[in-house]
Design a protein around this nucleic acid. Structure first.
Lengths: 214, 214, 214, 214
DNA sequence: GATGAATGAGGATTCATTCAT
DNA sequence: TATGAATGAATCCTCATTCAT
């Protein structure tokens, strides 16, 4: 956790440091990211950094936490009718997740990187991997209980499929839609008819593939 | 490309350098991987390295190329009846791919890392991503022509789904089966009944999800 | 000297600062000892430290003074019959000194370190060395006057011998007795028969070696 | 151990580095001694240092080894009649040791410091302490066997006395004789009549104190 | 063709001290 | 009087690359 010092900083300065650090860790691995670059850009003394944070790992942890918290809030504030079907819910979740990715791309990027890095301080590595997988696992089990998902399917495997598809889908769609539509603001791209259609197709594939078969 | 000097090296020495470099890049990011460590382990002079390769990037490129070539050869030499159905083919491909991962884990790891890194010299980054996607795209289109895949599905999207699932499936299964079966040789794990069943389930999901619907 | 502000501090707080500073300087060299660590542990502000003390050296000086004063008091309050023979007195002094070492190990350690360090601010270095030597010198001269010590012996040299032996003896005995007896409370170790015997031997060596010869 | 690189250096340069490093470690603790200062004074690049030595500790170890080896050689080349009595031998040893201290003061200083430091990497600390103590212990036991030393005296305690006196005696004499005689070359100071007399006195004290008593 | 010494910028982190509040 | 943020130089160490032999 950052030290008190950091939270006592003027809002403006604190935010500047966070933004620059996010940018650094979004563009670089944990090892490659440089505290020196961050402080240089932020215009603060090297020593000051260590009055705000314990060390590099402390900063990194903090950014990661910011990411998950922001995403949780984002999803929470847009939460849909809890009664909806499993696939409808997944669709909502996927869209909302992607919109979050677009509205806070660096915040997303850093968490994303964390799960794949392989050069993180060992404790972080482990923690980074579990989150999403566990969540989807529960979702699948509930879906099977409701009869939305074929209960012969191994729930862990199904969770793997959801996890892997939805964690890459955002990037895929962004690339594709930008190529076709030129450089527009990402957020609006996901409001287009084409985006909707692609979402539909993915959901259909999963629903047909996993749905309960009479 | 490595310089001529490299290819003039005694086979044994050349291979040793390749192996150690593979190990280094398999365990580290591009930035974190260290030429110093490689030459130290290989027992060659620092200067010699720069007579074999232009620079770090040159070596990296070369290893990447080795990886794709080796995989192509591996798949080519085991190729099945070209007449088989699309999903049967994909199933074969997936199994074969995973077996390749297991037989040449470092060679796989480095290509794998490449596609996700984000700290590669910019030109490499782009190149690393396309390969597999293009291949699956063709496969889907053939499948649609044959009537194996529902032709209403966007072929690029379907290729994305295949690509993303099968590039992660190996790791997923390895983790899971090892946890359940204890530490066995990976190769044999994929011959077990449980492995076969999980393969079947994935294929069913995809086949039901994408298959032609009457 | 510490500033007035320091002495105006509530007793409890002042003592806490002293204790923690003692611990830090007992475990570290002058250079290696860290003001940062002291204030962190003491829970006072960095700035406050500099309102109590001029600087690092000022604190160090003060601790050193505390040590010599405490030792003087300790010895004074236990003082034996002033008529006793020189070697009996030295024996008492040595035992008492060692007991002081044990009852205030940090206070002793810091003075001890001071005499040997070589990285002290130059003025301190000199001062640290003299104290004990002068004291033993006087003792030897009195012993010679009384006829307890052979007056052909150079008194300064004899003082050197006493000084050097008795300043190391405590550590030597502690090590040795602990090894033999297991980890007991140091104070009680010096009440054992073995301890007494070793004291006797040292005293005999010195008495035979320096004693008046008929 | 320094790397081959270091031993391949031109004699002149190698010696310059050793001399400057000796000076640095003679004047500073292990922690306080600075690699940066050494390389700056030696006029070599920071990176070059790490081509000569593994790290700070490696250099330190090497200097320590140089010291003990040089001393062993110095003593070996002046070795006396092996038949001489124990105290005569100790007298020779003490004089020779002190002359070595004077001829290579930095080399001595660093070993000396090592035994007392308290802030060394833990492994070194232990090693530094034993050497001399073990040596004197053997000497005492031989002396007792020959009848030169009273066999009722605890040999370990006697070794402690020798060790502690002779490791400080050099410094004591140097201080004292310089004060009395003005600043002369140390080596010649130990040839004066006064020096001889002080040596005699110390030896007499020890011999009378420990000698066999009929 | 092979060598390996030299380089200097860069990495993270700790430090004693100052000074505005 | 007390605070604690700011500072920047200092620490050890690693790196990819060059170049004279």
């Amino acid at each position: 956790m950052p030290k008190e010092t950091f939270f006592n900083l003027p809002e403006e300065k604190r935010q500047r440091i966070i933004d620059l650090a996010l940018a650094e860790f979004a563009e670089n691995d944990y090892d490659t990211a440089s505290i020196s670059r961050i402080v240089a850009q932020a215009g603060i003394a090297k020593g000051s950094f260590y009055q705000y944070f314990e060390n590099k790992e402390d900063l990194y942890n903090y950014l990661l936490a910011l990411g998950t918290e922001a995403k949780a809030q984002f999803l929470g504030s847009n939460a849909p009718d809890p009664q909806m079907g499993t696939f409808a819910y997944i669709r909502w979740l996927s869209e909302a997740g992607i919109k979050f990715e677009l509205s806070r791309p660096k915040l997303s990027q850093i968490g994303y990187r964390a799960a794949r890095s392989g050069t993180l301080p060992a404790d972080l590595q482990a923690r980074a991997r579990v989150g999403a997988a566990v969540f989807f696992r529960q979702l699948v089990e509930q879906g099977q209980a409701k009869g939305d998902i074929n209960s012969e399917i191994d729930p862990d495997l199904a969770a793997f499929v959801f996890n892997v598809i939805f964690s890459e889908l955002g990037g895929y769609l962004l690339n594709r839609l930008q190529d076709e539509a030129g450089l527009e603001d990402g957020r609006s791209l996901f409001e287009t008819a084409e985006a909707k259609q692609l979402f539909d197709q993915i959901l259909h594939i999963l629903e047909f593939g996993m749905g309960a078969r009479e």
